[in-house]
Structure formats: C-alpha cells, structure tokens
Design a binder for these strands. Structure first.
Lengths: 213, 213, 213, 213
DNA sequence: GATGAATGAGTTTTCATTCAT
DNA sequence: AATGAATGAAAACTCATTCAT
C-alpha cells in the first residue's frame, strides 16, 4: 500500500511535470508566433503561461532551447508526412501520392501556423543551430522532390526538364501556399482543394495544351 | 559676392551631405544583409562606413528608419521593372515580356542580395511598418501576375485555371529562385537562363504533353 | 506499552535525525572544500548527500548557517589541541610540547583539508559572523603563542624579542604549511616531519650559529 | 590652427578617457577592498564612481576583467621590488638587501591594502585566471626566496637546512605581517621597523644562542 | 518528515539613442 | 557638422529559500 502510494505520487508528479512542460511549450509557441523570435521575450512567455521567471528555466535551458524544441517538433512532424513515392504494383497513382504529401504538409503547417510563419519568414539571423536545422530540412525536402520528379521521368510521366529547377519551383509553390495560409486568419481552410490546386499547377503549368509555340 | 559664396558653400555642403548619406545607406545595406536586422548593430554600420556614432543620427532618425528607407528603395526599383504586359500590335510576344519581367526582378534582387535576403526570409517581427510595406508589395505583385495570367487567358494562351492560385504559384517559384540566388555566394549567376527556366516551368508544368490523364 | 513504543520510536527517530544531519554536514564540507563558499550551491550539497532540496532546510536554516556550523566544528577541534605549555616537574620538554601542538594543528587541518582551505584563503567577504569567529580564533591563537614564547623567555630558553612579532611569525609559518598541505593533493603527508621542520625553523632561524654579525 | 585645435581636442579627450578609466579602477579597488570580490557588484562600483551602468562596460569588459587588471597592477609592482640578491663586490650586505625587499613588499601591500586583503585571504574560488596568476606569483616568490637562502648557504651565512622549508616559512611570516597590516585600520605603520622585525626573526629564530639543546 | 516544483529578487550584460564638446 | 563618451532601460539568467503535497 505504501509502495503503491509512493508510486502513485511519483506518477502523478511526473504527469504534472509533463503537463506544465507542455503548457510552457504552448505558451512559447503562441508568443513566438505573435511576436516572432526576436520580439518574444522570456517575460512574455512566463506572463502567457502564468509562471515565475525561474520556473521557465526549470524546464528549458534558454529561450533558444525552447525555440529549437518547438522547431524540431514541427520538422519531425513534417518529415513524417514526407515519405518516398511508391511505384509498387497496387500502390496509388504517383500523382495521388504526391497530392497526399502536399496536403499533409500544408495541413501540418496550417495547424502549426505560429511556428510555420517563423520557419518560412524569419529563418535568418536567429541562431546558427536553427539555421542549420532549417537548411538541412529544406535540403531534404528538395532532395525528396527531385527524386519524385526523376521517378516520374523514369515512368515517362514527366517530361524532360532539369529536375533541380523543377524541385525548386515545386518547393516554391508549396511555401507560397503555406505562407498564404498561415497569414490568413481564416480558421478553416480547404486544405485539400489547395493541395490539388498546387499539384495541378505544378503538373500542367499555365499553357493550353494546344497553345504551345 | 557674399551671397554667391554662401550659395556656393551651401550647394557644396548639400552635395557632400547627400554623398555621406548615400555612404551610410550602402554601409547599412551591407551590414543588414550580412547579419540580418537584429544581428546588425549601429556599431557595425558606423564601423563599416567609418563615421562617428552621433553622425549616424544626423542622417537617420533610427535604426528602423534607415532599414525602412533601404526597403523602400528596393521595392521602388522592383516596381519599376514590373510593368503591365502589352498586347498592342507590334509588342513582343507576351511570353517574352513575362520573361523580361522575371529576369529583371531576379537581376535586381540578386544585385541587392543583402536586402533581398531580409525581404524574403526575415520579414516578420521587425516592425509593423516593414510588415505593412511588404504585404502591400506582395499584394501588388500578386495582382500584377494575376492580371497577366488573366490577359493570357483572354488571348487563349493560358488554359482555364484559378488565376489566384496560378499567381501564387508563380510568385512562389520566383521567390524560391531569388532565395536560392541570394543564398549562393556565387558572384555571377546566369540570371537569364534562370529566368527562362522558371518561366518554362510555370508555362508547361511537369507533365509530358501526351501523358495526361 | 504505548508509551514505551512511542519512546522507542522517538529515540530511533532522533538517532536517525542526527545521522542525517551529520551526513548533510559532511556533504556540505566536501562541496565547500571543493568549490569554495560562493562556488558551492545548495544544489551541489543536496546532490552530494542525496536528499531533496526541502530536506536540507529541515536540518539547517540557511547556507550560511551550515557553513558557520562547520567552521565552528573545526575551530573547536583546533582549540582542543591548543593547550598551554606545562612547566611542571616531569612534564615533557617545552620544545616537545610545542612540537606536539604544531603537529596536532597541522594534522587536524590536513584531515579537514576542505574547510581549512576556506579558513585560510577565503575568509573574507563571506559574512560578518564568519569574519568575527575567525578573528577571534586567530586572536586566541596569537595569544596562546605569545604566552608560550613569554614562558620560554621566563625559562631563559628564548632570547629577548618582541613576543608579539614572534607570535605573528610563528603563526605565519604554520599557516603557510597548512596552506601548502591542503593545496597538495597528496593523501599521505608526513605531518610529523613537517611539524618538526616548522618548529626547527622557528627556533633556530636561518643563520649559522657562528655567522652572526 | 585648425590642426592644432583638432589635435588639442584629441589629446584632451584621450587624457579625460584615461582619467575616467583610472577613476573606475580606483572605485572598483575601494569596493573590492570593502566587500571582497563576491560581495562587490558592478552596481556598487558604478555607484561609487558615479557613472552609468553602460559606462562601466565602455572601459572594462566585465567584473572579472577589472579585477584582473587591478591584480596584475599590484603583482607587477610587487615584482618590481623583488629583485635578485646581488653578491658582487661593493653590493650591500645580503641581509640588508633582503631587508630592503621585505620592506618594499610590505610597503607596497600596505599602500594597496584593499587588494592585498583579497590576494591574501580570498584567493580561492574567484576565477581560474585569478587563481593561476596568484599561484604563479607565489611560486615565483618562493623561488626567489629559495634562491636567496641557497645563496646565503653558499656564502656560509646560512646554516644547513631544507631551503624549501625555509622559503615557505619566510613567505609565511611575510604574509602574516601583510595580513596584520592590511587588517589594521592604522593609517601610518612603521613598515621599516616591521620589515626589520620579520627579518630578524627569520634570521635568528626564537632560541637564545646558548640555549640550544 | 520528506519531497521537489515554484518562486522572484537580484545580477550581469547589451545596445539604441542622446548630448556636451 | 562631427564626434564619441555617456546613458539607462531592458533583457537573459541564477539560485537561496519557500511551501503545497
């Protein structure tokens, strides 16, 4: 009984700790999103969460550490949605797979509107580590897109073009949509439709089929 | 005689003043580009220009003011290159005109590498005014692109698609290229080729002509 | 029965309390010795002892209080070894008695290496009380030495000299040796030999017997 | 004329700068002396000097930096007085030379009462650099004394004894006198007499010439 | 009694801006 | 006009002590 009670206490304490940690992360996310990295001060975060100054440092080492943790969380979630295109028998059409990836990326970033803003529009001069993480992430993303394009060429779905250029353009279109989405205060956006729109543009371009010079 | 001399002196003084003002602007541009808005300190700027701290404030009201002025300069130059597509008799083909605009935008931004970085990647959390200017500029840009696309549709060059979506995608591809360009330390980039690549992608998309579903 | 049981419990509890108190004192001693008063934090002490933060304050009022208690302990032990020189019939030779005292002082301080360091080298700016205790202790010590010297003069063992000056010099030599000893990481030092060396120097000085001016 | 005026201004500015630097050093010295290293806060120093917070950092990098500078100054001055004993023809007697060195060391430290206190009694746990400097200084001092003792032995002035032990004892006596001197609030101390007393003790010890066992 | 999360006053340091010369 | 020393508000971070569980 005593053992159980001690155990119970520990478990409850740990749970409470995790809870508070989460609360601080969320408060920080809100503040970062509203004021940007440099505009966000520890004071803002602790005011938002309603804790004392020292408490913050009980859970996070520094302003930069908590930002990195938030960033890593988002990047990890994004990576989860960026899976290689499958060309096995019975796999969904490549285009559908791409649409799915784009949709999930957009959805995730819209759901993390605050942080996404920073990732997309404030990603310079923050900190060497942040810079490194973002560069690595974007490099991965470009790599993924390039591979998908190359696979499309192998399958004769995609025409001859510089895969590097294509990947950059595709990334650009996605980022622009994300930016637009996170800027808008609209709560409910039809992410599905947007993903399809982006994909359609990237696949077919502007020109009429028969209007080519 | 005295009048003339005073006049002459005034003219010379004014010229000198303009000259120094320009020097400070250029130094600030370099520093902002290298370190970002928050990483750039007044000390860096006056060291770069070789003036005293107080002198800086004789020419500019504040750190924010000089940044805004630089931003306005770049935006004005960009606007100069963004001219409506002409469909008059004898005008160059629409595609060529678009290619020209894209080329000039890329060229201008590459030439102002420093500031472009900030415009593209650090444009949040700086200041309400900066935010407003950039929003306005991007809105204009989107408007211009949308009009061009609509005009293309009127001429039956461009297929049926949501002009809003198309404009965003195009803007995204351009921004991505600019970002890539300003990130690269390469001094000479073949901006022409890049502009054509972007345009080609935007016009024709990824798919083979005959691969359409 | 109940009374007895309660009594037994109380005794056991009290014993446990004393035990833990001692453990904290020892942990604190180690930490203070290693890091100095200001470098030692409550966190270091409770980590060393393996108790919770609050527990520390159940046993000691403050960081300063535990330090004072340690200091008092050492000073008390030192005082125990500083006993007047006996000139009774049958007492050991005065020199031997002095050697004994010096040896015990050195031994005690070496055994309390940690705290000795602080007493000798960090005894300023800590706290008025600490300062007062140390001043008092050193005053006593000087008094003791001065008396011993005077006694030696009465016995015609010691030449005519200012007993105040002599006492200071002797204290100085002892302190220097202690400092050397506690600084050295050597575990086993020949304290006896050192005590004799110090004493020999103090008794005979540098000069050759026949080299005097 | 203009040239001269500019020159004059610069010279005056530099002089003023040096003056203020000196004022800060002196204020810091006072504060350090009164409160010890850890008890002294930047706030105390700037209050003492009557300058703004930022001004302090215009002249010194940190609290530690200004302390190191003060320390270095004192150590340099002390080193100036610690010159090798000369045994050339016509040089003053070795004993007189030693007396001179001891006198100057005492005098210097008494004149720098504040800092000397810290050097002697707070020399642990301050900072790695401070520690290193002091260790080096004391090592030098011991080396110097040991050499002087060895030289005395070579000249048959000093009896056979462990030069290491002797050097430590001598250093101890000197430190004790310094400590006594700096602790006393007496403004005028007869440093000369003290130096002679110390020397006498170190040379002749306690015992009567004929009282040896 | 024991625990350890929470507290917040206090400290160092930075840097845009001012102002006497 | 030019200078650069001076300013001080504001920010990050520390750590002895308290207190609810």
């Amino acid at each position: 009984m005593a053992e159980e009670s001690v155990d119970g206490r520990t478990v409850r304490a740990t749970r409470k700790r995790q809870h508070r940690r989460q609360a601080i992360l969320e408060g920080a996310l809100k503040v970062f999103g509203e004021k940007g990295y440099h505009g966000a001060h520890i004071s803002d975060i602790i005011d938002e969460v309603g804790i004392a100054r020292g408490t913050f440092y009980l859970y996070f080492e520094s302003k930069n550490a908590i930002f990195l943790e938030l960033l890593d969380g988002l990047l990890a979630e994004l990576r989860r949605h960026i899976v290689g295109v499958s060309t096995e028998e019975g796999a969904p059409p490549v285009v559908a797979q791409l649409a799915g990836t784009v949709r999930e990326v957009l959805r995730t970033m819209v759901q993390n509107r605050m942080l996404s803003t920073i990732i997309i529009r404030e990603a310079v001069g923050l900190d060497a580590e942040v810079d490194a993480r973002l560069r690595a992430f974007y490099a991965e993303l470009l790599h993924y897109i390039r591979d998908a394009v190359a696979e499309g060429q192998r399958l004769s779905l995609i025409r001859e073009l510089d895969t590097e250029v294509a990947a950059m353009c595709i990334l650009g279109t996605i980022k622009q949509f994300v930016e637009q989405l996170v800027m808008m205060d609209v709560q409910e956006v039809d992410v599905d439709r947007m993903a399809l729109s982006v994909l359609d543009f990237n696949l077919r371009g502007l020109l009429r089929r028969d209007a080519e010079s």
